[in-house]
């Protein structure tokens, strides 16, 4: 690949002009400087690479918040209600005790513990059903058939808290589901008529 008109290459030029050093000292210097160079390059560019990896890794865990659900007085013992998280996930919430404490309540996630699909309630079969692999759960969220039944998995429960007679739930606040604000609602468009004329 050399250009033809070039004179032939001299042998690799002597490494440096200060040839006064004895050969063993020079080879030691060569080895030491090589090591220093390789270590330095590895450490600095390696650190930069680590920063890049840290940048790519999610900077914080999924956002969660304690949300108000209901006054505990409004939930009858044995009764249940459906709560929808800000991200749109459905939560089945039931009251099983009358102590008025957080132990009375159970809040079931609708995310299947098997592989994360969304379960739905089948009232005719009195069970939660997961369409992905035919998993089924009873009213209390215990797996009864399909992969969750075999593995003894239950629907995950959300943390609850009672404070001053009010029930709060800790739920994730983000999801890919984006409410379509432009979807037509019942009746006329509220954003256009803006209520009573001024």
């Amino acid at each position: 690949m050399h250009t033809p008109e070039r004179p032939p290459q001299p042998q690799p030029p002597p490494e440096g002009h200060d040839s006064g050093n004895p050969p063993d000292r020079r080879s030691f210097l060569a080895r030491a400087s090589s090591m220093g160079m390789i270590a330095g390059l590895g450490a600095s560019y390696g650190t930069a690479g680590l920063y890049a990896a840290r940048y790519l890794y999610p900077s914080k865990p999924r956002d969660k918040a304690w949300m108000f659900v209901a006054r505990i007085a409004d939930v009858a013992v044995g009764g249940s209600l459906r709560y929808t998280t800000p991200g749109g996930e459905k939560v089945a919430l039931a009251r099983q005790g009358s102590a008025g404490t957080v132990e009375d309540f159970v809040a079931l996630s609708s995310t299947c513990p098997h592989l994360g699909c969304q379960v739905h309630w089948e009232s005719q079969n009195q069970r939660f059903f997961c369409p992905c692999h035919n998993g089924a759960f009873d009213k209390s969220g215990k797996g009864i058939s399909g992969p969750p039944g075999d593995a003894g998995q239950s629907l995950p429960r959300y943390p609850l808290r009672v404070e001053g007679g009010l029930l709060y739930i800790e739920v994730p606040t983000e999801s890919l589901e984006v409410a379509d604000a432009s979807a037509p609602r019942e009746g006329h468009d509220p954003c256009l008529d803006g209520g009573a004329p001024l």
Partner: peptide
């Protein structure tokens, strides 16, 4: 400039980059 010196310079500059 010798190769050793150059390598030394690189080691030094790497340290500066690291800092």
């Amino acid at each position: 400039m010798t190769l050793e010196f150059k390598r030394g310079v690189i080691a030094f500059l790497s340290a500066a980059f690291l800092v």
